[in-house]
Nucleic acid binder design. Structure first.
Lengths: 112, 112
DNA sequence: AACATGACATAGCACCGCTAGGCATGTCAA
DNA sequence: TTGACATGCCTAGCGGTGCTATGTCATGTT
């Protein structure tokens, strides 16, 4: 299980990165990130939904209720311009830290 | 300036990584990390010292007062066994997240 | 003497993450 | 048809904590 600090630091960049590919809804984001991370990243709904609301408030993402084929309603989020800018910034920040750690670990920062 | 979440997530792994190379004291750690990160990571004493105390409490590091050549006293920290284990764990956690982000960013692990 | 820098320390509270709980709907087996 | 489970969304509330603001003391410098 990941430390709560690391979860806090990675949630927004992960959401932005996933939504940069395609729109998606909250519940599915949890599954998707779990799979992408091979089960390492286990989000709960209680922590994700408030983050999504906050991100929408910030203008990073926007939402739309849509009925799935089953008739059930889902709230789909998509990234918008502010979000793309934020993602760029998040990437840079992340890479700053990663590069520093990689130096200390004596691994090439460009390799996984 | 880095987000506080990212700072929170990276402080312990950075301290452990730096101390894994060589013992050091708090004030110098701040400078060293600033240089390693090309000025991107700017710690304040007020946030670092409590972290160092907590890490010592956890048994990750141990401290010793030593007089520098000038006669001034400094509190040197060195990593101990628990800290090495913790560092290993931190590395794995960090890489879990980094790998997931790298996938989304379509960074080719073998590039560059 | 006065000031800058080095070096360590922590009280205190504003802030906020997330647990715990709630609601509704679709589906599938028994 | 019923109930169990998965899907899917939401938030009140508070326990825990990060870090600003501040203090101390030593050494070096002007």
């Amino acid at each position: 299980m990941l430390s709560k600090e690391l979860v806090a630091a990675s949630t927004v960049p992960l959401v932005l990165s996933v939504l940069a590919d395609d729109e998606n809804y909250g519940y599915a984001l949890i599954q998707q990130v779990r799979e992408l991370s091979s089960g390492k990243i286990e989000w709960t709904e209680g922590m994700l939904y408030p983050v999504l609301h906050w991100m929408e408030e910030q203008g990073m993402i926007e939402s739309e209720w849509k009925a799935a084929d089953s008739g059930r309603k889902r709230k789909y989020y998509r990234i918008c311009r502010e979000g793309k800018k934020a993602l760029q910034e998040e990437k840079e920040q992340w890479m700053s830290v990663h590069t520093t750690l990689a130096k200390l670990w004596k691994v090439n920062p460009n390799s996984i």
